[in-house]
Design a protein around this nucleic acid. Structure first.
Length: 333
DNA sequence: ATCCGGTCGA
DNA sequence: TCGACCGGAT
């Protein structure tokens, strides 16, 4: 990795705002003032818990769902890090229900417990916490504390790769270029601008180079798609079979011990030999195309002790996945 | 039917 | 370094 004196010495780092990228940085900020997504709620708060929560929710998840539904509801239910720390994991998972990647919610809760007084304020400390990797640690430091550090998510990575014509290269190279490019006087706005540029202009396919403030410099603009090649995903079809057992307005569920839906409430699995088919639907996640079949069953064959009985009227608000929610259409009006 | 997106553990 | 983890949008 390229390590230069500027990146190690904070004094020289300030001087680097006079570096060769200065005009580029200023073009970028000018664009951001006009076209940036300034209305996002987590960009209009100083509360580090709010900023942290938004970054966890935004991992692998589209902005719209987070902004309109999960982020406001979660904050209403868990208004502070301390309240979150004192909640049961099951409550946290129920607030995350339907959002996917539930390890994020488990790690969020663990992190709240580990640092309920206040989150650390350095990238080095943040990255030790569960669920916080290099990107999120940097994002918290940059967006929350305006620290002079690079941030690289996939949008920013695409911009960096194109601007510097890096092709597909190792994470380290991309981060080191992002570090050289950081605007030392406006690091927060610089990184947010790069992120918005990546998601609004420097698109994976058909990037809008004519709207881009960096296009005059961009070394990759003649072949932008050279820098976004992805390996095609091979899908796999799978059949899943679940049993539905309802007694006295309560349904039999269990807590998943598998990696999939770990600690979430799931329907008990059954063998596909059952007679009473109740319904069938499709679902998908990662590379799997699922065809799910539900069977009405009379009793639980084994592991009876693991069953938890949930009132049907509580079902919708339980810690269940989207798959389980879809299933409920066949036994709840 | 394909696309989009961070962290973690093997 | 690679595959598993999620689900809605397009």
């Amino acid at each position: 990795m390229r390590v230069n004196a500027e990146s190690l010495n904070p004094y020289l780092r300030v001087k680097s705002s006079l570096n060769r990228f200065k005009s580029l940085q200023s073009q970028l900020l000018k664009w951001y003032k006009i076209h940036g997504r300034h209305e996002l709620p987590w960009r209009n708060t100083n509360d580090m818990y709010h900023i942290y929560l938004s970054e966890i929710m935004l991992q692998q998840t589209q902005v719209n769902r987070v902004r309109d539904e999960y982020y406001p509801q979660f904050l209403e239910r868990f208004p502070s890090l301390e309240i979150l720390a004192n909640a049961k994991q099951d409550e946290v998972l129920s607030a995350w229900s339907g959002l996917g990647y539930y390890s994020r919610a488990r790690n969020l809760h663990k992190t709240a417990i580990a640092s309920s007084f206040a989150l650390p304020t350095t990238q080095k400390e943040l990255i030790k916490l569960p669920g916080i990797g290099r990107y999120t640690a940097s994002a918290i430091c940059s967006f929350g504390h305006n620290q002079n550090i690079p941030v690289v998510d996939t949008n920013i990575a695409r911009v960096i790769k194109r601007v510097f014509a890096l092709m597909d290269t190792s994470e380290k190279i991309v981060w080191s270029h992002a570090e050289e490019f950081v605007n030392a006087t406006e690091p927060r706005h610089h990184n947010l601008a790069l992120m918005d540029l990546g998601s609004l202009v420097c698109l994976p396919k058909n990037p809008k180079c004519d709207e881009c403030p960096l296009s005059s410099f961009c070394k990759g603009k003649t072949e932008p798609e050279l820098y976004t090649q992805t390996k095609k995903t091979v899908y796999e079809s799978l059949e899943l079979f679940y049993g539905v057992l309802i007694e006295e307005e309560k349904i039999a569920l269990k807590y998943s011990k598998e990696k999939l839906y770990k600690d979430m409430l799931v329907l008990p699995s059954v063998d596909p030999i059952e007679e009473n088919l109740l319904g069938e639907f499709k679902h998908s996640y990662t590379k799997y195309r699922l065809n799910v079949k539900l069977y009405e069953i009379q009793d639980i064959n084994d592991e009876k002790d693991e069953i938890v009985w949930i009132n049907l009227k509580d079902f919708k608000n339980a810690a269940i996945s989207s798959l389980t929610k879809k299933a409920s259409k066949f036994f709840i009006d």
